[in-house]
Design a protein around this nucleic acid. Sequence first.
DNA 1: TATGAATGAGGCTTCATTCAT
DNA 2: AATGAATGAAGCCTCATTCAT
Lengths: 199, 199, 199, 199
Amino acid sequence: MDQLSEKGNITRARIVETARELFHKQGVRATSIDQILETSSTGKSQFYHYFSSKDDIVHEVLRFYMRIVESGRGPVLLNIESWDDLERFFYDHVEGVRMLGYERSCPLGSIANELASENEQVRVDVNLVFGYIRNSISGFLKGLKSEGKLKKSADPDALSDFSIATVQGALLLAKVRKDGTPAENTVKHALIHLKSFAK
Amino acid sequence: MDQLSEKGNITRARIVETARELFHKQGVRATSIDQILETSSTGKSQFYHYFSSKDDIVHEVLRFYMRIVESGRGPVLLNIESWDDLERFFYDHVEGVRMLGYERSCPLGSIANELASENEQVRVDVNLVFGYIRNSISGFLKGLKSEGKLKKSADPDALSDFSIATVQGALLLAKVRKDGTPAENTVKHALIHLKSFAK
Amino acid sequence: MDQLSEKGNITRARIVETARELFHKQGVRATSIDQILETSSTGKSQFYHYFSSKDDIVHEVLRFYMRIVESGRGPVLLNIESWDDLERFFYDHVEGVRMLGYERSCPLGSIANELASENEQVRVDVNLVFGYIRNSISGFLKGLKSEGKLKKSADPDALSDFSIATVQGALLLAKVRKDGTPAENTVKHALIHLKSFAK
Amino acid sequence: MDQLSEKGNITRARIVETARELFHKQGVRATSIDQILETSSTGKSQFYHYFSSKDDIVHEVLRFYMRIVESGRGPVLLNIESWDDLERFFYDHVEGVRMLGYERSCPLGSIANELASENEQVRVDVNLVFGYIRNSISGFLKGLKSEGKLKKSADPDALSDFSIATVQGALLLAKVRKDGTPAENTVKHALIHLKSFAK
DNA sequence: TATGAATGAGGCTTCATTCAT
DNA sequence: AATGAATGAAGCCTCATTCAT
């Protein structure tokens, strides 16, 4: 019984993981449920045992990203506690797309871009993740500020948004150029700007 | 004779314009050819009289943006000749998505994000437009530099990439947040950073 | 369980049988997948559950003929072991098209004629069937030869090709004339010629 | 005026010639009117100026073959007046498909095979051509007979049908095998058989 | 005689989803 | 928990044909 349900969880996890990868690689609409099942070697109609619809698995994938982010187990450092961490936050992202040949941008940004206008749930889901990151960065900056290590003119929330936007734009530009240089330039200058507020 | 060919061009232009609008609103994959034809009140299969495939009309839409950009007739100031122009470049973009209720991001960025990985032509097309804008900005900065009005440490090309990326990221963030504030914060700081190189 | 899979197989077999009949009656290109499904009372898009494409079902139909030929369950005697068998081989074919009002020729020849130039798989598939028949006839003739019952000048392989070609030509002529006489004349003379090598 | 109508005739002839070639190469159904017009560099809708329908141009192509046959200007000797002529009749056909890489069979046989069952006009048209050839051969044989140079048992009409059928079958076999050998074997034996009636 | 825009039916194929077991 | 057959709408595209000039 327990074994079975565990097996189920494994199957379910395999489907989510495959979907996540395919959504990132080619987009949500370009990915059919059949392709997810084939790629994950899952028998047809297993899908509707675990998920209620395609929208549902998109939601699950986004929740998966949220869990990754919360747990800190992802490939990108998100728990920002120092200027070095913030630098890693930026460069981890650029390194991430470099490893994929600059053929993908941020998986969350992509999905949001594709679906946010017609699927409010997607927008909210992505917002949650972005919000978490935002809090991580602004928390760090607020800490600095309370320690008197940040200029008074610095607005932690605004600078967090600036950071997230810059990363998103950098990754998109890398994909369009199929080259990491513009992304590196972007994050480099973003960091220079952010650090200009340090005292 | 002239009327006829004009009529044809009108139909064609109507299809392109409708496609452009729908692609921006809901994405390319979410837009069916039938929907383009219905929305533009065009009889079925006129489409393939003017375009060879769906990819073809995507290409045409992107070429349309290129023409808009080259002619300077678009809603965004792209012919950058002063710091004020650069400021307008950033804020025109934010204003553009504000008018659409923050439900869309950059039409070019969206299409690239959705299709660039699987459609090289799309990537190249978007690159052309981005390249034009990049040249416009870096041209301005290079001019400043030759006049001694820009710090020597400033790299015009890198700063152009930074500008484009920030705008793209800002618009995406506006869409995800359904709110213009983060975008405004982003472009504000981008401008501060850019101007920090002025002498 | 068994019933289910049988039900599936039955659906599939029904599709193949209907396709086979329609291909023979009106040609492959003249037969739409929709027509196959309607005629076989199969719900739409069941088709792609069992076959990957139209080419695929053509392939399956040709494989069906191959199985018929190998199993000897077809309406034509193909297991040639005597002069009488060879005679029946010829006359079975003519009788076959007579029953269909001389409105069709050989189903394999038709499909090959229509598609072999653009579909190598079809050519290969038909070749396999023709090759089987060729071996059957030449095997018989070689047997005769080894028993000294065939003139030394007789070339079993060449005479097999001659037999197959004559049958194909006879059936086509019957269709063009909507009359069996020329086909009968053809196979009669083919047999006379073949028997002229008997000792 | 005259020039114009002549120009028209040239356009028309070009369309017919292109259609003839494409029908032979890939079949009638596989050839679209658009393809005919494109291949012949003819503006669209010129077609319906000269022909009333696709069936009509098929008819015209078949009438073209009839005229070729009647005029004796074709690549195949059809005016049979000697055993040598008959031999050439057979070998010209095989040589004809050899030059086309054994990728096509008889253009008339192909069209008949594809359409005769559903288009009576096509059947009649092909029959006319085949009938002409039949008369040519049987005329020769009847002449021989009246001169006492043919065995009494020989039936000129039956042997003509046999000749036509063998050629058709030979060409089809060449196409299926993508090799001329079986066709050569077939016509060789057909000739042996025919000559066996010579006195 | 000539042009090309327009039409609409239909072809092949894919999709998300449900059903029966 | 799992299987795969079944469904029907919809997607992209091609076709033969007609219209307007």
